[in-house]
Design a protein around this nucleic acid. Structure first.
Lengths: 354, 354
DNA sequence: TTGAAAGCGCTACCAA
DNA sequence: TTGGTAGCGCTTTCAA
């Protein structure tokens, strides 16, 4: 059912308000407000409540976010900043966040973080949404450090939760156990008899990269294998091309490697090409394991063995923590402790006898 | 500079309001409003204007979206619905939309369209944002038809622009010239001497798929080549796995093919594996061209030749059209007519003499 | 030219 | 228990 304003041109419609519901149910607007907001302390005859809810349904009433936000001084919305749309891991995090948020009555507003490429656009993204009060707080899943963004966030003084990323100025963070994932991945290679295992790291100075490197080293040490420094290479960023470049460098510096643990799937895709150009055949000459798992891994030649982490749960927990901050809770650093999941595919074999 | 409420716990801050700016600049709030909104009909001494703008800057004032939205009965925000985060083409569309929107003072709110997987979540995404008035209209770039979503959109009676997709009930749409792209791609194969050229289509019933198929047929006809019906296969959806399955089927039905034009890159990735499993070597036995272009195409073995379309401009134009609808403009079907861009890589060679 | 004031839709307080 | 009402921050009309 629609309520048309008499003077609206082109059949324009006015969205139904609390008043419209109240009129229809023959009650006071404030009563309707309390019914739709499930006010516990409201004791009214069941019949009245039903009448109100019926009117809400018939009329198609949805509370106006602007009015509610103005009154309550909060938007009931959460911003989620991801670096780009091309990385499937953010899809999984975002879905986790979405499902938790919708259970709690919050909307998720997604923005990418283009600030690296174009500073002016950055202001129009999450900073703008925060400054205008469109979101109450922010989940920062952006993988690259970005001082300007951080400074703005600080100035705005709204709750921020880092998602799988720890940063000096922010006390609230949720992470998966990257170190454990890297440990398991490296162990897998060790278990196949490899000892000359390299590590293609993510960018230097990113804590995610570092945590994974720690897991790699720990697994090596546990087996009494010393990881030489030339067995490790940083990529410039997380892209495919960065993996390609870093791998060329790594293979030239460490021709003795028989296996490589790669910090993520995109880097591994670049690695595949670099290895092939250097004459390595995967997995015969070089076994590969990478972190995270998505569809394309099945379609690489050979299919890529992966170790994946609970990203859906990461998104859920991040939302929960942010909401607890809204309610005055203390910022914490939380870790999701689910065991990483290993998917064996064709990219790992035992080293050749030499 | 921050304004702290005396009684706020934990150093809570209140966001500055118009009033705060007015007090500081010693003018009336309404004057401030007119200054920040660039009211043309406002004739005041330059010094006053500067005083106001200075106060705005010093105090860090940003207008409150809720108050403004409530007053103006619009959110100054646009919803963009994309099917998922794993497809880079949406990244390009979204960036185009972002840059146009920020120039016009609109925010872009991005949501994925999970309705295919989980109907209940759909309500909490774009439909919810529209119903609550958080966005004034919607850009629908979702590739799959979704009747429930469309029905809701109709009921809410808010402007909707389809992005590279045409649907019976929606009059406003912006598309790129998929047909032309497909034509150019097919021509490229014909120009290399191929005649037995197959087409791996996208899902049946999706207009984007169909438009590309038209371009394919037209290019074939122009050369007097008759495309046999067994040279064409539909994929189930747009994913890598769908390309794999459809290709197996296609190659079994049409072993005479020496080239294939593929409807998008994901399908082509699946095709690469299927072809290899059937013993085809790309490009020697089979030349491949796909639509769209992104980083991974450079890293496939062999690198994939692509034809790409102006997606950035698509996003920009879609935003422009939606805003014109807000202002009472008539819905149109627009086509972006820029010439497709060909990137030659290793996946195309001349057919072998047989 | 400038300022005062009404009111957008909602919630929550307070009075009855 | 229920209903009236003030006011969130902003824009815009209207009066001075």
């Amino acid at each position: 059912m629609r309520i048309t304003t008499g003077y609206g041109d082109r059949g324009e419609v006015r969205r139904p308000t609390l008043r419209d519901v109240a009129d229809r149910a023959k009650v006071d607007p404030s009563l309707v407000s309390r019914v739709v907001n499930l006010d516990e302390s409201l004791r009214i005859p069941e019949s009245t409540r039903e009448r109100v809810l019926l009117a809400v349904k018939e009329i198609g009433y949805r509370p106006n976010a602007a009015a509610r936000g103005l009154r309550m001084q909060r938007a009931n919305a959460i911003g989620l900043v991801i670096p780009n749309l091309s990385n499937p891991i953010y899809s999984e995090i975002a879905q986790g966040a979405q499902s938790e948020a919708s259970q709690t009555g919050y909307s998720i507003l997604l923005t990418t973080d283009p600030s690296l490429e174009q500073i002016p656009a950055a202001r129009n993204s999450m900073i703008g949404l925060l400054a205008e009060g469109r979101v109450d707080g922010v989940l920062l899943a952006s993988g690259t450090s970005n001082n300007e963004l951080m400074r703005h966030l600080r100035d705005l003084d709204r709750p921020v939760v880092m998602v799988n990323r720890e940063l000096p100025g922010v006390d609230a963070a949720v992470t998966v156990d990257d170190e454990r994932g890297a440990f398991v991945a490296t162990q897998l290679l060790l278990g196949n008899g490899h000892t000359c295992i390299g590590h293609l790291m993510g960018p230097q100075g990113i804590d995610t990269s570092e945590r994974r490197a720690v897991g790699y080293r720990k697994a090596m040490n546990d087996q009494g294998v010393v990881a030489k420094s030339n067995w490790i290479a940083h990529s410039r960023s997380w892209g495919i091309g960065d993996g390609y470049t870093a791998t060329l460098d790594l293979l030239d510096r460490a021709p003795e490697l028989t296996a490589i643990f790669v910090s993520n799937v995109s880097l591994a895709i670049g690695l595949y090409r670099a290895a092939s150009e250097r004459g390595y055949v995967i997995p015969v000459d070089l076994s590969i394991v990478a972190l995270h798992n998505y569809e394309i891994t099945d379609y690489l030649l050979p299919p890529l063995t992966t170790v994946s982490l609970p990203l859906h749960e990461l998104g859920r927990t991040a939302v929960r923590h942010l909401i607890s901050l809204f309610k005055g809770g203390e910022p914490e650093r939380l870790r999701i402790d689910a065991e990483p999941h290993v998917t064996l595919r064709g990219s790992v074999v035992c080293p050749r006898e030499s």
